[in-house]
Each structure stands twice: as structure tokens, then as C-alpha cells.
Simulated scan of single mutants.
Amino acid sequence: MEMVTREFGRAGWRVAAVGFGAWAIGGTWGEVSEQDARAAVHAALDEGVNFLDTADVYGDGRSETIIREVLKERGGERQLVATKAGRRLNPHVAEGYTKANLSGFVERSLRNLGVEALDLVQLHCPPTEVFYRPEVFGALDDLKAEGKIRHYGVSVEKVEEGLKALEYPGVVSVQIIYNMFRQRPEELFFPQAKAKGVGVIARVPLASGLLTGKMSRESTFAADDHRAFNREGQAFDKGETFSGVPYDVALDAVEALRAVLPSDVPMAQVALRWILMEEAVSVVIPGAKNPDQARSNAAAGRLAPLDEGVMEAVRDIYRTRIAPHVHQLW
């Protein structure tokens, strides 16, 4: 069976529904060797993935550079690469989102990726106030007019930010956390994004690995892994780590999911296929630290649709166990 493909909003792209999230090959997920990182990207592309999502701060450019090298090695038709800008600001405040700073970030990503124009640059979870500053989006329009970027979008923490971003005509995509443990985007955001022809990138699809079903109370994480140091949001928004769900609550919910999900397919693949049941989602971007994970993720794009009984059981587990901890926070 072929990988499911989707239209990417108004950008005119047809993308494989499972993409590749390149945070883990950059940093803050424990040690990933250069060899494993490259092999993971190669494996994803071999499986038909054609959308890679990275950021300038993933390993301080390491992730972008690895992608450049792999695509150069492969040659042929170039795959789509989305990157992000803004988190290099220190302090990370709305006032820093100026034309000059954004231009500098774009120039650096152009060098890291070895291209003359970025396919898609996304504001990288900026402070909420940025979404109320039209001049920031005007600066992105300028960069597009200058030929430095082909399209721009945003990556958001909150549904509110995603809804606000939809009001800017130049925004072609919104990247938002959506998974079995973060279902709120379905209510208002997805219908509006679809109505406006804006692409949706579903990020943190496996809730930092919880939805692989492979974690336990005994699981340990390296000191440089955000799952060790950011559980309460000490370094960045806590919603990025385990989707903001308290670890023990999440583990109990995973056991409840295990009882209702198909048992003949890895839980991670079912969790990704669950996301793709939402028509508004253009692409889901699981990360991979090695080729096996990349291949397994891509296989989710070839699974048959889940039946309504499974979908309703997942909704019920979310409503009863998870929503009280996360629903109104993001």
C-alpha cells in the first residue's frame, strides 16, 4: 500500500502524510550519533517521506546541517524542508521579532541548509504577543518578496495562537501539538484552518515517546534529554514534554489505551494513524533517532483507517483521564 499523501494548504505541495521531525537528531533528546542521525533521515526518505521539519536551534544548526548533507548525498529531486526561526533570541521576547533579526536567522538557515530560498520558515513558538503584531508578519512578507523564503507559517503552543495566526493572509501553515493526549485543536482550530486552506503540521505526535507504549515508571532519561529536565517547564513550555501530562497519569492512560487499540500493530504506528484520521492535518512529524524508528513511523502512513469504535474509545480515555490536566492550558 502506498503512503497516504495530502495537500499542504495553499502552498501547492503534495506531501506524504508522515513527515520527519528533526528535533531529536539535533539535540535535547540524549545522545544521537552523526551516523545514526544521517541514517535515520536516509531511511525516512527511502520510505517515501518528502517533508522534513527542523529548526535553527536544534543542536545549534546541527539538525539543519545533517539534512543538507543527506540531501546533497542523495541528489535528484529535492525534498521539502521546513525550518523555524526566533528561538535564537536571548531573551526570547516579542520585541526581538524584528525584520533585522528575522533576516539574520533566515540567512543563517540558508547557509546551514545550503539553499538559495527556504521552502517554509516558521516562527518558532513565539510569545503570544507576537501574534498581535502585524509588523512581524509584514517582515515575513518582505522576506518572501526578496526571494529568501518561499512560504511562511507558525509553530504554536496554544490553540489561541493558532487561531490568531489564521487571520494573517500570508500564513500557509500552522504547526500545533496534536495527539491522543492533546485533542483540543479538533474543536475550533481544525475546522477554521481547513476552511481557510491553511496546512496543519501535527507535532509532538507521540507525546515525547509515551504513545509508543514502551515507557514505564522505571524509564530513565539522559541529563541532556528534555524528558529529564523539562517536566515542569523549567527550560521551555512544559507542554513540549510528555504533552504536559503528569508522567504517572500518562502511563496509566497508556495502559487504558493498550486495551482498546489494535494489538497487532505497534502502538506508535496506531497513534500516528489516529492523528491522520483528522482530515485537516496535512502532515504529522514524528522524530526518529535511528533508521528502525524512521521506518516504523513511515509505515503508519500505509495503515488502513481506524474504525469508529477505536476512535471513540480514545476520545473517552482523553475526556476522563487526560483532559482535566491539559485541555484548558493550551
Score class of each variant (00 low, 15 high):
Glu2Thr: 15
Met3Lys: 10
Phe8Asn: 09
Arg10Gly: 01
Ala11Glu: 03
Trp13Tyr: 15
Trp23Glu: 14
Gly27Ile: 05
Gly30Arg: 00
Glu31Asn: 10
Glu34Leu: 10
Asp36Trp: 06
Arg38Val: 11
Val41Met: 00
Glu47Gly: 03
Leu52Pro: 05
Asp53Gln: 07
Asp56Gly: 09
Arg62Ala: 03
Ser63Met: 01
Glu64Ala: 04
Arg68Asn: 02
Glu69Val: 00
Val70Ser: 04
Lys72Glu: 10
Arg74Trp: 05
Arg78Ser: 03
Leu80Val: 15
Lys84Tyr: 11
Asn90His: 13
His92Val: 12
His92Ala: 08
Ala94Trp: 05
Ala94His: 01
Gly96Tyr: 08
Thr98Ile: 01
Gly104Gln: 06
Asn112Thr: 06
Glu116Asp: 08
Ala117Gln: 05
Leu120Ile: 15
Leu120Lys: 10
Leu120Asn: 07
Val121Asn: 03
His124Arg: 09
His124Asn: 13
Thr128Pro: 11
Thr128Arg: 10
Tyr132Asn: 15
Arg133Cys: 04
Pro134Lys: 03
Gly138Thr: 14
Leu140Tyr: 00
Asp141Gly: 07
Lys144Ser: 00
Glu146Trp: 04
Glu146Asp: 14
Lys148Asp: 02
Lys148Glu: 03
Tyr152Pro: 08
Val154His: 01
Glu157Tyr: 14
Glu157Leu: 13
Glu157Cys: 01
Lys158Ser: 12
Glu161Ala: 13
Ala165Leu: 08
Glu167Gly: 13
Pro169Arg: 09
Gly170Tyr: 11
Ser173Thr: 08
Val174Asn: 10
Gln175Asn: 09
Asn179Ser: 15
Met180Lys: 10
Phe181Thr: 13
Phe181Met: 11
Phe181Gly: 11
Glu186Lys: 10
Glu187Tyr: 10
Leu188Met: 00
Leu188Val: 15
Leu188Lys: 13
Phe190Leu: 07
Pro191Cys: 03
Ala193Trp: 14
Lys194Asn: 00
Ala195Val: 11
Val198Thr: 09
Ala202Tyr: 03
Val204Gln: 12
Leu206Lys: 04
Leu206Val: 14
Ala207Phe: 04
Thr212Val: 05
Arg217Glu: 15
Ser219Thr: 15
Thr220Phe: 00
Ala222Cys: 02
Asp224Phe: 00
Asp224Leu: 06
His226Glu: 15
Arg227Asn: 14
Arg227Ile: 14
Ala228Leu: 03
Asn230Phe: 07
Arg231Ser: 12
Gly233Asn: 09
Gln234Asp: 05
Phe236Leu: 09
Phe236Val: 14
Phe236Cys: 08
Glu240Asn: 14
Gly244Asp: 07
Pro246Asp: 06
Pro246Met: 04
Tyr247Phe: 15
Asp248Lys: 07
Val249Met: 02
Val254Gly: 07
Arg258His: 12
Arg258Trp: 00
Arg258Val: 09
Leu261Asp: 09
Pro266Asp: 08
Leu272Tyr: 02
Ile275Leu: 07
Glu278Leu: 01
Ser282Arg: 05
Val284Lys: 07
Val284Trp: 00
Ile285Ala: 04
Ala288His: 04
Asn290Ala: 06
Gln293Ala: 12
Ala294Lys: 08
Asn297Ser: 08
Ala300Cys: 13
Leu303Trp: 05
Ala304Arg: 07
Val310Ile: 10
Ala313Lys: 12
Val314Ile: 11
Arg315Gln: 12
Tyr318Gln: 07
Thr320Met: 02
Thr320His: 04
Ala323Lys: 12
His325Ile: 06
